[in-house]
Nucleic acid binder design. Structure first.
Length: 568
RNA sequence: CGGGGCGUAGCGCAGCCCGGUAGCGCGCCUGCUUUGGGAGCAGGAUGUCGGAGGUUCAAAUCCUCUCGCCCCGACCA
């Protein structure tokens, strides 16, 4: 393709709106342009990358036995009402009405639509397992879209859905997708890591996220160095504490702590370390009951774990008025001692503590030498805190490290959540009506492109892994002599015949401009053709990633490039 | 939704405090020269100053309302 005939509006300067490197470089390289917050047009270069990723996904999904379909973007409210998600999904679900005032939504995911298809069309266990996927534009009205393609409101997603006759078979389907995802992200040239994850609002029993490791990632993962355990921090289990205090209980004391509202304040004031305190967090459940959650002063509560324990979905920290009403004190002085008619649950670490400090449920007051059972009753002790770097791995006890990751893929074993709600049944080999066991599997296609840039760039621009590069070779004639023109033309034809994807910079620009744009766009190989080289019978081939430069005769260039591209 | 910030030419910005009828760099167009890491000279085009209302002889500038965008947070299959 010739640069003069493709829309590649490169920018010299960084657009001010772009904060992270992938967003900045995609804008500068003319790959994307913003239409509205979180909504982008893919220009030719950007679309080529997207298509490359899609094709890798297609090949691997097909290889794994999934079949491609295409569901509509709009779906009727009735389907979403059947599963309760019309209300549950909240504002993230973009809704609209047709001319008859019927409710529709723009699909953020397609469990309802595919399950409806299944219940209509599948009758027998002989048709199972079934796995259908699509690659399609999704819409989620994110609270805060950001970072270009990283968190858009409209984005391209591959979503797959499996239906199985039983749990065992469903696990096989799940594993096939897991394996396919590993191949997909490996082929995309990404440094990634599968981690255990929470199922969140989509439901189900087992889940892994595929995280591209990058500092700009919005997710935190915990993992064993060189080990097998890795989990999203939301999910990571914490082992019960081994350090159980054997101190003798001391008499309860009241202490005045004027204005000491934070763990830090209280510790400083009492000359204690935070692990001698217990924080009391008051949470409000959706039905407006208040639950006190106790965690050690140096720990953070994990709301997902609390939700799981309480069987709720959306607890929120109680607002200050409620806290004042419940504890008779401003926020900062809540404690479990003397709390009436409130459920108290505690992190397991609290169980082993003796003579700790808690809020006094009165302004400027704390209690010293507090002990469970003697001073208050805990309904349940459980793993309720956020795991952190340094905690022992729940598998091997080895200390966990933490890293930032970009979630590019997510696989779920859903169980019967949707098949039950929507009646997705089939007849098993005994002629018995049976609910299908479902799984669902997503890949953020556009996010994968952005994630790849986060991992593959330098100060001058992008460095595409060959399988998803918009072009393999960037052809750069840098002088205007007839010899250069002829050599370029001949090489261009030769590369095309060899099925190498080549971008020929045929603009009347100076060498520097071409070199800089080429570095920005980041094709794996740059071929420079100029009189300086041709005088010695050579052209120059630069490896974008390493900067390595080789000189070859023009007639040798195609075979050199073919060989190097094939080896990847 | 809470906090912070920004809307002036395609991009990056100045002008605003202290009102006087819009400017700089890059890009774009024409010509000549130049041509191996973002060329030089000459000439040229491009703005409802985000929008609406108000104050004023006069508004990019002051006031009110409004829309959009970015960042942090809450949220997130």
């Amino acid at each position: 393709m010739r640069t003069s005939q493709v829309l590649i509006p490169t920018l010299r300067e960084d657009p001010v709106e772009a904060e992270i490197v992938s967003h900045r470089l995609m804008l500068r390289a003319g790959m994307i342009r913003k239409v509205a917050a979180g909504i982008y047009t893919y220009l030719p270069l950007g679309l080529r990358v997207i298509r490359k990723i899609e094709n890798i996904i297609r090949q691997e999904m097909n290889r794994a036995g999934a079949q491609e379909i295409l569901m509509p973007i709009l779906s009727p409210a009735e389907l979403w009402r059947e599963t309760g998600r019309w209300d549950f999904y909240g504002k993230e679900l973009l809704r609209c009405q047709d001319r008859h005032d019927r409710d529709f939504c723009f699909g953020p995911t397609h469990e309802e639509v595919i399950t409806d298809l299944f219940r209509r069309e599948v009758r027998s266990y002989r048709q199972l397992p079934l796995n259908c996927y699509q690659i399609q534009t999704k819409f989620r009205d994110e609270i805060r879209p950001r970072f270009g393609l990283m968190r858009g409101r409209e984005f391209i997603m591959k979503d797959a859905y499996s239906f199985d006759r039983d749990e065992e078979s469903a696990r096989v389907s799940y594993q096939k997708m897991y394996d396919a995802y590993e191949r997909i992200f490996t082929r995309c040239g990404l440094n990634f890591r599968p981690v255990e994850a929470d199922n969140g609002m989509i439901g189900g029993s087992m889940s892994h996220e595929f995280m591209v490791l990058a500092e700009t990632g919005e997710e935190t993962i915990l993992y064993e160095e060189g080990g097998t355990y890795a989990a999203n921090v939301e999910r990571a289990e914490v082992l019960p504490p081994t350090d159980v205090s054997t101190d003798q209980p001391l008499p309860l004391e009241t202490v005045s702590t004027p204005g000491m509202k934070t763990v830090e304040d209280v510790c400083k004031f009492l000359s204690l370390t935070p692990d001698h305190l217990v924080k009391t967090l008051l949470y409000q459940t959706p039905d407006n009951t208040i639950v006190a959650v106790l965690v050690r002063g140096d720990h953070e509560a994990n709301e997902i774990k609390v939700n799981r324990l309480l069987g709720t979905t959306e607890i929120i920290l109680a607002d200050p008025e409620i806290v004042t009403k419940v504890t008779s004190a401003p926020v900062g002085f809540a404690g479990p001692v003397g709390l009436k008619n409130i459920r108290i649950v505690a992190d397991q670490a609290v169980q082993g503590m003796k003579n700790f400090v808690v809020g006094g449920n009165a302004n400027d007051t704390h209690f010293l030498n507090v002990n469970c059972d003697r001073d208050f009753q805990v309904e349940t002790f459980a793993d309720l805190r956020q795991a952190k770097a340094g905690d022992p791995s729940p598998r091997t006890n080895a200390p966990l490290s933490s890293a930032k990751g970009i979630e590019v893929g997510h696989v779920f074993l859903l169980g019967t959540k949707y098949s039950e709600a929507m009646g997705a049944n089939f007849l098993d080999d005994q002629g018995k009506d049976t609910m299908a066991i479902m799984g669902c599997y997503g890949i953020g296609v556009s996010r994968t492109a952005a994630a790849s840039i986060e991992q593959n760039h330098d100060a001058k621009g992008m460095i595409w892994p060959t399988p998803i590069a918009p072009f393999h070779v960037h052809l750069l004639p840098v002088t205007n002599s007839e010899l250069v023109q002829e050599t370029t033309e001949t090489l261009y034809q030769s590369l095309i015949e060899a099925e190498i994807e080549v971008l020929w910079d045929d603009r009347d620009e100076r060498a520097g401009v071409k070199f800089n744009d080429a570095d920005l766009i980041g094709a794996p190989y740059h071929v420079t053709i100029g009189d300086k080289g041709l005088k010695n019978g050579v052209i120059e081939i630069k490896h974008r990633r390493t900067g390595e430069m080789v000189k070859v005769a023009p007639s040798e260039a195609t075979s050199y490039l073919s060989q190097h591209l094939a080896s990847l």
